[in-house]
């Protein structure tokens, strides 16, 4: 009997350890978000979004240049990356057994696991080294390279969820293949594809490593992608590692803005998919 009692106790002890691990695992998220709000929120005001950075030592100023830079660069990356990624994803679901689809799928998995700093090096040798100057466009190219394989995988997964009978019905009604694919298959899972795209945008909006030596960052307002350009994550990095307290304050506020953008995008994306596919 003693043994049974011990086994019950062991079960209880292990379950409490498991609960403890849940608490420890959730703690960092709360700590990180909490610190961001406490240290960052005070510096966020209208000026922060509309003004340029103040010279070192002066209070005030904002990060308008970095907001514009991130919008431009991520936007351009999306214009390049989303059509290619979605197109490749549709290809993989339309011709799932073709050699090209198998290869593309495998390559996408390889590239999804590739560290983003390596992508940055490649964008540098491909574009910056050839043009002999840093540019926002090189940054966009690096971000697009990260997006394409991600979007390919999510698009294909989403189309896979559409029942095969829909395709058969459309074909039986005499729809050509392209219309079956676009206005039946893709149309049906469009929210899912949008979600995948939003997640990809959220992911690259927070990327710093591939921009370090492509977009480089800048202290000035710039809208020209052929020049070095500022970005929110780069600003966080520069200001966090700089020596001034004012800079650290700006780093916290910028990080808060960045994380709001990223979390909002992921939240919208997750909630949208859950409603569509899990209930």
């Amino acid at each position: 009997m003693n043994r049974v009692v011990w086994r019950r106790w062991k079960s209880r002890i292990m379950v409490s350890l498991l609960i403890a691990s849940v608490l420890v695992a959730v703690a960092p998220l709360i700590l990180i978000l909490g610190t961001l709000i406490i240290r960052g929120a005070g510096s966020i005001n209208f000026d922060f979004f509309t003004r340029m950075p103040a010279p070192a030592g002066e209070a005030g100023g904002g990060v308008a240049h970095a907001i514009v830079g991130t919008l431009l660069m991520v936007g351009t990356a999306g214009l390049i990356g989303l059509p290619l990624g979605i197109g490749a994803g549709v290809f993989c679901s339309e011709f799932p057994r073709s050699k090209l689809a198998t290869t593309a799928r495998f390559v996408a998995d390889v590239m999804n696991g590739t560290p983003s700093i390596v992508i940055g090096v490649v964008a540098w040798t491909l574009i910056v080294a050839r043009q002999k100057h840093f540019s926002g466009f090189a940054g966009s190219a690096a971000l697009a390279m990260i997006m394409i394989p991600m979007v390919l995988r999510t698009t294909e997964e989403m189309i896979k969820l559409v029942p095969h009978s829909l395709r058969e019905a459309a074909l039986a009604l005499g729809y050509p293949r392209w219309r079956t694919s676009l206005s039946v298959m893709v149309r049906t899972c469009l929210p899912g594809i949008v979600t995948g795209s939003l997640l990809a945008i959220a992911r690259v909006a927070g990327e710093t490593a591939p921009l370090l030596f492509t977009a480089l960052g800048s202290q000035f307002m710039g809208t020209n992608l052929r020049q070095p350009i500022a970005a929110l994550p780069l600003t966080v990095f520069t200001y966090a590692t700089g020596p001034y307290d004012d800079w650290h304050r700006i780093a916290w506020a910028t990080a808060l803005v960045l994380i709001m953008v990223v979390l909002c995008l992921s939240l919208i994306a997750r909630l949208a998919t859950r409603q569509r596919f899990h209930d």
Partner: peptide, 15 residues
Amino acid sequence: LAAIPSVVYGLWGIF
């Protein structure tokens, strides 16, 4: 946690 950008972890880590 996976959605938080790496640079934000760095900032939190430093300070």
